[in-house]
Design a protein around this nucleic acid. Structure first.
Lengths: 157, 157
DNA sequence: CACATCTATTTCAAGCATAAAATTTCTTAC
DNA sequence: GTAAGAAATTTTATGCTTGAAATAGATGTG
């Protein structure tokens, strides 16, 4: 097929803007549905899930600043979320031997159980909501996202 | 090229999950940069920009509930944002003749000027950040997003 | 050891977001 | 016209998020 190289009536910047708006709409409608289900079915939230997810990947515990670094959110933000997880008995803070400033946060056994259940539901929800994407579409979308990242200069992390 | 039709080692649900995480990462790093620039360069925010954008498209004004409907956010949310825009002299509430419950929100002239400037910067930023996407990529990405929407049953609006 | 500096975390003030309750006003059915 | 219900909006309580300031502890240099 011969690519259409005619200058479009609409400038490229407008096309990029419109694509961004569609991108945002897809993202936020999916995310809103996930938040709703976390709330209604599990009495939880996406920020809590994100923190638990990080903690689940590091059974030896994470320092507060490591959590905020992984999730790319502020320190003060993590303080509040971990406070609430701790109140609910899902996480706990343990002292770091050599450093009285820092603490390691870990999932409690109850937290591990709760997270396993949430993670399974989360994966199933996404599988359902992204069901329109088969293997080829997934690969194509992944490649396009790589293009975005390359240009943003954020390949790593 | 012969498509690889072998059953992948990784189940499709996991692939969808991983794609979603990359999708989220792209979206949130771009959005974070936009929020940062709105704040640092214009002393504004994305929610304010979204509301002003809706108001700019309807010069005759919008009722509070119309704004929240367009932006798909709660009523109480809009109350606060419009309050702050009004305090800053960018929007105003005018009475609706036949209905003392409702009010029309409009941009002030200052609000129109401010929005025009923000909108131009916003488009330029996206053009820069999505610069990795040429016409063909834009079209391909648009088509893939359509596939997602179709499956979500959210074609319209 | 003292002092400056750096690091880890929490606290604070402001704004954003929601769902649920409350208020005010309109409409409709009698 | 009055009472019941619906509609438009605000208020409230709670949680998430940020950047900046505060606190406490560690580290390094003289």
């Amino acid at each position: 097929m011969i690519p259409d190289t005619r200058p479009s009536a609409e400038p490229l910047s407008k096309q990029r803007l419109r694509l961004w708006l569609r991108f945002l709409k897809a993202q936020s409608s999916i995310e809103a549905e996930i938040r709703r289900r976390l709330r209604d079915q599990y009495g939880s939230t996406l920020p809590r899930f994100d923190v638990m997810s990080a903690l689940a990947r590091f059974p030896d515990g994470l320092k507060m600043s490591e959590i905020s670094g992984l999730l790319k959110v502020s320190n003060g933000n993590v303080t509040g979320i971990v406070d609430r997880l701790t109140q609910d008995g899902l996480a706990l803070r343990v002292a770091v031997p050599g450093d009285r400033r820092a603490q390691l946060v870990r999932l409690t056994p109850a937290g591990q159980t709760a997270f396993a259940e949430l993670a399974q539901a989360h994966e199933a929800w996404l599988d359902e909501m992204l069901g329109g994407l088969g293997p080829n579409e997934l690969e194509a979308l992944g490649a396009l996202l790589d293009g975005v990242f390359d240009h943003l200069g954020e390949g790593g992390n």
